[in-house]
Design a protein around this nucleic acid. Sequence first.
DNA 1: TCCTTGACTCAGA
DNA 2: CTCTGAGCCAAGG
Length: 130
Amino acid sequence: MTPKYTSSANKMVYNNQVWEVVRQIPPGNVATYGQIASLIPPPEGMPAESYRKLSPRWVGGAMAACPEGVPWQRVINAQGKISLRGSVAETQRELLEAEGVEFDERGRIDLKRFRWKRPDQDEQQLGLPL
DNA sequence: TCCTTGACTCAGA
DNA sequence: CTCTGAGCCAAGG
């Protein structure tokens, strides 16, 4: 039968990979959901194209179940903004500002300045403007 | 079973 | 810059 890439077992494995990556983001830096997804390989047999469309949401799902000890506040969306709503969003902003991350009037972070760049990762891999 | 709602992103208008 | 809609999928009412 056609294998789905979303069995609870595989999801748990994926979540652990997400948290592992997030743990590597140093203070004062941020990463987007899509960026984190790009650092994790697709499940066995999954087309890269499909993975590209689904993975950002998977990362979001992993962050929603984030265990303690993981710097969840360093994960933001591709627009450079906080994706959470309500009071928890303020908490995230405060934690980031305490690390030196700056927000503009629109509540947006300049990814050119604060986006985390893994040692072995360069701009062209993400195709993002620098 | 249908409909809504997500810690997403990209392309258009 | 803001707002939609599409693409995708799972969970809950």
